[in-house]
Simulated scan of single mutants.
Amino acid sequence: MELYKEVGKLIAKYRKDKGISQEKLAALSDLHEDYIGKIERGERKVTLHKLNDIIKSLGITFKEFFNNFD
């Protein structure tokens, strides 16, 4: 298992479940939309600080996010 790819897939799942585009998530989390796409594909390693920004922008907690992590 590649940890960053799994984190990216989980971000994409939550984003899609909430009906949010990559562009909208990028704006909400103050990140570039290309960066969100690369994180979701596991091409970029997200820091805990930026992951926290993304998770908050999705309206969930760290606990909720990682409860669904395999």
Score class of each variant (00 low, 15 high):
Glu2His: 11
Glu2Asn: 14
Leu3His: 11
Leu3Ile: 15
Tyr4Lys: 13
Tyr4Pro: 10
Tyr4Val: 15
Tyr4Ile: 15
Tyr4Met: 14
Val7Phe: 01
Val7Glu: 00
Val7Gln: 00
Gly8Gln: 02
Ile11Trp: 00
Ile11Met: 01
Ala12Gly: 11
Lys13His: 06
Lys13Trp: 04
Tyr14Arg: 10
Arg15Cys: 01
Arg15Met: 01
Lys16Thr: 14
Lys16Val: 13
Asp17Ile: 09
Gly19Ser: 06
Gly19Glu: 07
Gly19Ala: 07
Ile20Tyr: 03
Ser21Leu: 05
Ser21His: 03
Glu23Met: 14
Glu23Ile: 15
Lys24Asp: 12
Ala26Tyr: 04
Ala27Gln: 11
Leu28Arg: 13
Leu28Ser: 12
Ser29Cys: 14
Asp30Val: 15
Leu31Glu: 10
Leu31Met: 12
His32Phe: 03
Glu33Phe: 12
Asp34Ile: 13
Tyr35Ala: 11
Tyr35Thr: 15
Ile36Asp: 06
Ile36Cys: 07
Lys38Arg: 10
Ile39Asn: 09
Glu40Lys: 04
Gly42Ile: 08
Gly42Ala: 06
Glu43Trp: 03
Glu43Ile: 14
Glu43Phe: 05
Glu43Lys: 08
Glu43Arg: 09
Glu43Val: 13
Arg44Ala: 11
Lys45Ala: 13
Lys45His: 09
Val46Asn: 04
Val46Ile: 15
Thr47Lys: 10
Lys50Pro: 06
Lys50Gly: 06
Leu51Ile: 04
Asn52Thr: 11
Asn52Arg: 10
Asp53Cys: 13
Ile54Leu: 02
Ile55His: 07
Lys56Leu: 10
Ser57Gly: 09
Gly59Asp: 04
Ile60Phe: 00
Phe62His: 08
Lys63Trp: 04
Lys63Tyr: 07
Glu64Pro: 01
Phe65Gly: 01
Phe65Leu: 02
Phe66Trp: 05
Phe66Ala: 00
Asn67Ala: 12
Asn67Gln: 14
Asn68Tyr: 08
Asn68Cys: 05
Asp70Gln: 09
Asp70Cys: 08
